[in-house]
Amino acid sequence: MALRKPFFTFGSKFMQNKTAQYLQLALILGAGVIGAMAAQWLGLPIPYLLGSMSASAIVSLTTYSRSGEKLWFPLQLRHVFIAVIGIMIGTTFSPEALKTAPILAITLCAMMLFVCAAQILNFGIFHHIGGYDRVTAKYAAMPGGLIEAVTLGEKADGDVETMSIQHFVRIVLVIMFVPTLFQIFSGETVGSAASQTLESSPSDWTDWLFCAVFAPVGIWLGARLKLPASHLMGPLLLTALLHAVMAVDIQGPSALLNLAQLIVGAGLGVNFARSTLCHLLSAFALGFLSVSTTLIMASGFAYLLASVVPMSFTALLISFAPGGVTEMSLVALSLGVAPVLVTTHHLFRIIFTVTIAGILTARSERLGKGNPGS
C-alpha cells in the first residue's frame, strides 16, 4: 500500500519559497536604503530615487549573473507607492490651477510637434547608427509609453528585449539628466537633498491616515475608469478633486515622499537584472545619444514657450523631457515645479504617442506589411 506524501512537505516548500522571496526583497530594499543615504551624503539630486535605483541595479545585476534568477520584487508594492506619489501630486492642486487651461491649449499643441520630431530623430539614431531593424527602431524611438510601445512592437515582430531595454534606459537617463542639469546650471542642490518638502505646515497622523485610505481607493478608481497610468492617476484625481472643493487639506508628509522615492527607485533598478553588460553598455550609449538630442530639442521648445506662456523654463523642460509619467512627476515634486501641469503634459505626450503609433500599426497591418524589415 503506497503511503501518502504528508501535506506539511508542500507547506514547508511553500514557506521556504516565501522566506527566500522576502529575503530577496529585504536585500533590494536594504541596498536601496544604503544607496539613498550615500547619494544624499554626496549631495546628489533626488537622492532617494537615484541612489536607491543605482544600488538596486548593481545588486540585481550581480545576483542575476551568479544565480541566473531575477530577484523578487512585488509589482503591487511599487503600485502602492506610485499611488502615494499620485496623492502627493494631488495635494498640490488648488482651484487656481483651473486657470491654466489657456496655457495648456498652447503647450499641448507644441507637444504634438515635439513628439513627431522626436520620433523621426530617434528612429534615425536607432536604425542608422544602432543598426536596429526598421520595426524595432520605430517602436524603440517612441518618446513615451514603455509598455504600449513594446506591446505594439512585439505585434509587429520587433525585438522585444531590445525595445524593452531601450525604453527603460530612456526613462533612467532622463530622470538622471534633468535634475542633474538643473543642479549644474542653477548651482543649487535640488529635491530632498536640499530639504525641499511639500508641507506648507507640519503634517500629523491625519495626513498619514488620508494617504493610507486614498491609495487603495484611488487605485480602484483608476482601474475602474481605465485611466492611463491608472495607479498614479486614480489617486491623483481623487486627491485633486477633494482639494479643489476644499473637502480635505492634506499636507504631504516629506518622510512618506522620501519612502515612495526609495521604493520606486529600487523597483526600477531590479529591471536591469537579465541584461548582459555588453547589451546594457550598447543600449546606454545609444540611449545617451537619443536622450541628449531629445533633451536639446525639449530645451528649445521650453525656451520658445517660456516667452509665450506664464510657465518657467524649468517647468516646461520637465514637461517636455521624455521620461516616464510617474518618474517625471516625482522629479517635478522633488524640484517643487508645477507637478499638476507637468503630469498633464506627460500624460498627453504618452496618449498622443501611443495613439499615433497604434494608427500607424493598424495601417501597416492593413497594407500587409508583415516582415520585420518593412
Rank of each mutant, 00 (worst) to 15 (best):
T62N: 09
Q21E: 11
S52K: 10
T9W: 15
P74F: 10
G35K: 10
Y48R: 03
M88R: 06
L75C: 03
H79N: 11
M88E: 06
K70V: 15
A26K: 12
T63A: 05
L42N: 03
I58L: 09
L27Q: 04
Y64Q: 03
K5R: 13
S12Y: 14
G11F: 12
L25F: 08
Q21G: 13
Q76V: 05
G43L: 06
A36Q: 07
V84H: 01
L29W: 09
Y48N: 10
G11W: 15
F81T: 02
I28P: 11
A26Y: 13
W41G: 09
G32P: 11
T62W: 14
A83F: 08
P47R: 13
K13F: 14
F81G: 03
F8C: 05
S65L: 00
S54K: 03
L49E: 13
A39S: 11
S56I: 10
A20G: 01
M53L: 15
A55I: 06
I89H: 04
Y64W: 11
L61I: 14
G86S: 01
G86F: 05
F73C: 04
H79R: 15
Y22W: 11
Y22S: 12
F81M: 03
A36L: 06
F81D: 00
M53A: 11
S12K: 08
M15K: 03
R78C: 00
A38R: 04
F14C: 07
A36N: 01
